[in-house]
């Protein structure tokens, strides 16, 4: 199939950037979206153009490196699917596709579709861990964890840190990202001792990094390729309230 692409091109952080039109020809439905862009790039290189810069690594939906806003939706039209796992059979011959970077004040564009997501790392640095030293940990079965809690913790821990939640949020908030980590650790007995401190530090850092506040639009949940639930945000809020009054 043949497609018309409008791709965000921006030389560097200082550049204002614009959408540029490209034709993608002879696209196979078995290609992934990124392989389609690879193809466009190969042609750009051999015809003397500059290839479109975009991030990716694992290309199987787990590392969280990829991420583009495809036709107005982070990671594109298919639910629970990262850009690298989106296949071209989700499009039709003759389609026009708009491709933009994830946009947020906290995600400055580095080039084209490549953004700097260090702000998410800094939210984790503020407390998204359990402070345990290496060695001397008690036996893995010393503290039993109800299956239900372990499962919920895992539901939350599946976050891949891609930033689609931020990109989708009308407020550019990182609440879903933050809530996923808070819930993951708060659900486990090992994470309880620091739970209150953690939620305060992480939400404070979120604001410092330039993310917006949560207005409960739930766009994040709809965009998340890993199905992280907005109810984890409610959990974060509860943890925050508990932390204030204990």
């Amino acid at each position: 199939m043949n497609l018309t692409l409008y791709v965000w091109r921006q030389k560097d952080a200082a550049d204002t950037g614009q959408l540029v039109r490209y034709q993608a020809k002879n696209i196979s439905p078995d290609m992934s979206f990124l392989e389609m862009l690879d193809g466009v790039n190969q042609e750009l290189i051999t015809t003397g153009g500059e290839p479109i810069a975009f991030d990716s690594d694992c290309r199987e939906g787990i590392c969280g490196a990829c991420g583009q806003v495809v036709n107005g939706v982070p990671h594109g039209p298919r639910k629970l699917t990262t850009t690298c796992q989106l296949h071209m059979r989700n499009f039709r011959d003759g389609d026009t596709i708009y491709i933009e970077p994830f946009r947020s004040r906290a995600f400055p564009v580095i080039k084209d579709l490549v953004i700097d997501r260090g702000s998410l790392d800094r939210i984790i640095q503020a407390g998204g861990y359990i402070s345990v030293h290496t060695g001397g940990a008690p036996d893995g079965n010393a503290i039993l964890i109800p299956k239900q809690d372990a499962e919920t913790a895992m539901d939350a821990a599946e976050c891949i840190g891609c930033g689609a939640c931020v990109a989708a949020c009308p407020n550019g908030s990182a609440m879903l990202f933050t809530a996923a980590k808070v819930t993951h650790l708060a659900k486990l007995p090992q994470g309880r001792p620091e739970a209150g401190r953690r939620v305060c530090m992480m939400t404070e850092e979120m604001l410092k990094q330039g993310f917006g506040n949560c207005s409960n639009h739930y766009e994040c949940e709809a965009a998340c390729p890993k199905g992280i639930k907005a109810r984890f945000i409610a959990k974060l809020n509860r943890e925050f309230v508990t932390a204030q009054f204990t």
Partner: peptide, 14 residues
């Protein structure tokens, strides 16, 4: 929080 807005944005749940 979003100084440069999208050219095209689809809202799904908001």
């Amino acid at each position: 929080a979003r100084p440069v807005d999208y050219m095209k944005k689809e809202n799904r749940t908001s």
